[in-house]
Design a protein around this nucleic acid. Sequence first.
DNA 1: AGCACGCCGACT
DNA 2: GTCGGCGTGCTC
Length: 642
Amino acid sequence: MPGAPTLYARVILDSPLPQLDHPFDYAVPERLRGEIRVGQKVIVPLRSGKRRCDAWVIDLVDESEFGSKAADVESIVSPVEILPSALYELARSIADRQAGSAVDVLRLAIPARYVRAESAFLALDRVVAPAHVPAREPSADKSYVQHAGGVSQLTTGQWVPRWVTAFVERAAAQLDLSLSTVCVVPDFRDIEHLMSAVTAAGLSEHTVRLDAGISGQERWVNYLRIVSGESLIVVGNRSSVYAPVAHLGLIQIWDDANDSFHEPLAPYAHPRDVALVRQSHTGCSLVFSSLVPSPAVARLVSLGFLKHDAESRRPLKIIPTDSMAQDSGSARIPPAVFTQGRAAISEGSVLVQVAKPGYASTLRCASCRSRAACTHCAGPLRQAKQQGPVSCRWCGRISTQFSCGSCHGHTLAPGASGGEKIAEELGRAFPGVRVLPVDASADVIVVEGKTLVIATPGTEPVAAGGYAAVFVLDGELARGREDIDADVDALNQWMSAAALARDNATVYVSGTGPVLGRVIATGDAMNFVTSELSSREALALPPATRVAVITATPQVLESVRATLEALPHRSVLGPVGLDADTARLILTFDYRDGAAVATALRALIVTTATVPRKPTPATAPTAKPRVSRLSVRMDDAWLTLN
DNA sequence: AGCACGCCGACT
DNA sequence: GTCGGCGTGCTC
């Protein structure tokens, strides 16, 4: 075809190397001209014909900005436009914000491909039904809905937490405007509840689920539906915040303070931040909702970015106790559980929230009461089941012959009681009552009838009609964690249990301490979290500031230290040596300096990844050059700052 | 990461 | 004169 201008595909390489995280131009050969589209996955050569690399087409252009001769695109992997340009732009922004790579974000956002499931989906040749009304412009309302808790019954008879029905109502309202909603929730229990509610509302045809609770094939087919342009409700866990649905009207996130939202994979972006960036790109509405505001959300409320929409309190008798029981060798069961619990169980199910799973989650020496330690690694010993083996929490070794490190005693005694032990004791105290211990490994999400449920935080099933009484034990354990968010997390943990009680039920919370006790009794969590936030402001701690945790070998960290200290910052903590070859430095900085700091950190990552391949020629001739990696984690509040 | 290009020692 | 060692730098 003489005179036909060259067509170039601008692609992002699917490579983890930070120095390759930018667009590359490849010429589109004649044979692929009619076929290639933005969003497709392709295969391209790299540096030589032999080496090839997967890549995503992010643009098709007539002129290349590349100075030399571009190589040819080799082939197209699939006709599907897997990466809508809006998703690439989101990934780019998130990567830039977090000093990471766009491909790393895409790996979280795009599920694994299943070729057979894809062929079957394409063979259906489904026509996306035109929406009954053309999609409206989203309304860009941004709010924090402080939920009052409670449970509600669906038309199908099932019971779900009441926030679930609120989520489905908001999503249904969007669908009426032909707009899509992305619902991001912490775990499979929430997803199951939402799926039940969506079905009860007759919306299951318009809903797709994205999480590990469905097979890989189903997930890929759901993803294909998402990119095919339908207006949908997407229900999923943290990575579904990226779901590239068309006509996005609303992103709603439940309980953004939940631990499950910490992303363990680079670039470690929190779904809350992703939602905020996505809101700014698309102008969609945004709802954060929870029982207790996270400090990050409280900040957005105090800035006026989020409208605070607090539901009025539910009638509950909340009884905080500084400490309901002292460590008495037997299970730490406050007397109220026996007296009030007996009355409540005749009315309905009763929930006991315990801090620890298992039987005896810690063990002590029977004679001197010191903590029982593993003889191999000094890790803590525990007993998962009554009559079960005693094992080490760290190394897993079974301990057959205990010998106390302090007094050489040989007898073990239970320390903190786990749910199994409490269940056993309560089973004896309440003959004829069904006692159900629940922990993270259980998949009970609803209980019927009159059941005494003993659950660890976050695993509490919903009771039909709501619990007749709720007892939170071990409150002081939740408060005592050495984490800057310990108090807020403890409040949230207790409120989550209280939220499952029926109206007018009594909720006992032990070990609250005076301050948090007052907060749960009055229900004024927003005030508490806001004051917590202002103390963080004074100390220059997140989320009043942003934070970057920089990890590298001590040598590398030392070599970049001056550059780091020259960046705009509120504080520099460290460097601290973590072990022989890792050191860490923590930088806090203002939100307005975020872009500058991220760009500078990114530049350091790229230079340390490319330049230093020689250790010292004199010292170790055979020692292979240490991969001198500089790792950056932005805004990961999971670090313990103390 | 890989892979190619580049500039110094032992081979035909 | 050239084959090949691995140090250095780039990948459209």
